[in-house]
Structures are given as C-alpha cells and as structure tokens.
Amino acid sequence: MTQATADACEQITSKTEEFVRSDRMPHIWCPGCGIGTTVNCFTRAIEQCGVDLNKLAIVSGIGCTGRVAGYLNLDSFHTTHGRAIPFATGLKLSNPDLKVVLYSGDGDLIAIGGNHFIHAARRNLDITVICVNNFNYAMTGGQVAPTTPIDAIGTTAPYGVCERSFNLPFLADSCGAVYVARWTAFHVRQLTKAMVEAVNKRGFSFVEVITPCPTLYERRNRLGDGLARMEWYKENSVIKHDADTRECDIDFQGKIVCGKFVDKEDVPSLLQKRNQKTEELRVKGIACD
C-alpha cells in the first residue's frame, strides 16, 4: 500500500464502530468465530430501520453470543442464563415504547430458556429474537445442545448425538411467531434485511443465524476452520422463501434451508390485545390501570 492510500484509509470509519464499545475491543471471540459477523449485520440493520436509539434495548443471556449485549454501545442488558426472555418481557410490558431485541445463543434461548421462548411466541409478545445457532454450548466447552444435529460430536457425546435436534423455524412457527427467517453468517446482506424486517415487525419475530464455532463444534467434528465453514455454508445452503417450516430440519452436514418462512400480517400482538382490552374496560367504566 502506498503512503497516500494508507492515509486515505484513516479517514474511513466502519459502520460497526459507531455502535460498539471500542474501548472493549479486541473482543473475546475466537479467530473465525461468526458472532462478530452477525453483529456487523445487526449494526447496519438498526441503522437502516431508522429506530430511535434512545428507544432501543438489547437483551442477551449468557454464552459467547450473550457477550453481544456488552459490546454494543446501546442500552443493553446481560441477564442470567436462559432468562433473557423473561427480562425482556418485563421490560417491554412496562415500557411499551421501547423496541426490545434479544440477541442470544441457541443453548440460552432454546435449552434452559426454551420454555420462555415457546410462551413468548405463543403470546405474540412484541419482541425480536435473534438466535445465533452454533449447534452447541460454546462458552462452556462444546456440550451438546438441543440444536446439535443428530450424529454430530460434542463434548458430552464423544461418539455422536443420538437425539434428534430442534428445527428452530418450525418451533417458532408452530408456537405462533409472526415473522420467521433463517440465514447463515455467510449471507450477510440477506441477514441484514431479515433483521430490519424483524425489528420493524409488530409481535414476536424470530431470526435464526447459523454461525461457525470453529474452536468447538467445527474442531470436534473435523469440519475445518471458520473460513472453511463459511465456504461450506455458501455451497450447502438452499434458499427457499416461504418453505414449509416442517421441512427445515438440519441434519449433520445436510443442506441448510434458508430464507424468510413466515411473515404474517394482522395477528394482534400481546400489547395490541392488552391495549384493546384496557380500552373496552375503560368504556365500561372499569378502571384497570
């Protein structure tokens, strides 16, 4: 690089930099971990959806993905393991003007937090859930999660998993989510668009991002480094918008169905329903504040 080019480069600042706590960089994520890539998409998405940053709250649970809340320079909460959704529920119901976005891992949201997940979707609670699915409990050393594909190896399944895994889009869809999409960390543009749509959606919106964890999942399963995995996603993803979510299962090293699967209009959200009920009671002269 010439000196002139080098100097010109200093004038450019990343979009991500505006939203992260630069003083906390470099972050703890491993080389080739995909979580940071999803954060790039998220920072661009919040810029594109034009949401008032003073009315945006990010909630994470515990895990490598849970660190996102701490790295974003926004109002963010790093809650206890599995309890991001209960925290977000209270936050949203008591501050209905806030946009509440959950950003957490598959273990946090779907294993220990699975019960909260299905009920938040059932209630059509007005929140957005972004689930970084790296097929394992990464932070604690690569244990099997409910998302680990059958036959894959994990710390707690050295000879391969014998249980079938959850198909997250189907789970979210069948519980009532009004927006459901799945992308991989390779699909940066599509993922950004899905995040914009999800954040702007009224009701329970869900975005799953399949993400490399080269240190644990990929290493134990001998699938190469982060880059090899990203290239594998590129070759092995099948984009099928509006696919039947029952057909979005992920088999070990099988094709990954990506796309926007659910985008429902006119389903009243929990807050809409609550406001409507309050208004009906007020008209009848029953105070319920």
């Binding site: 450019i12 930099e17 470099p26 994520w29 080739g32 940071g36 890539t37 790039n40």
Partner: peptide, 18 residues
C-alpha cells in the same frame, strides 16, 4: 463495497467509496 466490513468478525476492516 464494504463487504469486507460486513464479514470481518473482529471489526478490523471496512471499505468505503471515496
């Protein structure tokens, strides 16, 4: 195009049109 900035998991690179 800033695709490098979209992919970089370490927020170490970005591109811009100048």
């Amino acid at each position: 195009c800033d695709l490098c900035g979209m992919y970089c998991p370490d927020f170490a690179i970005c591109g811009a049109r100048v």
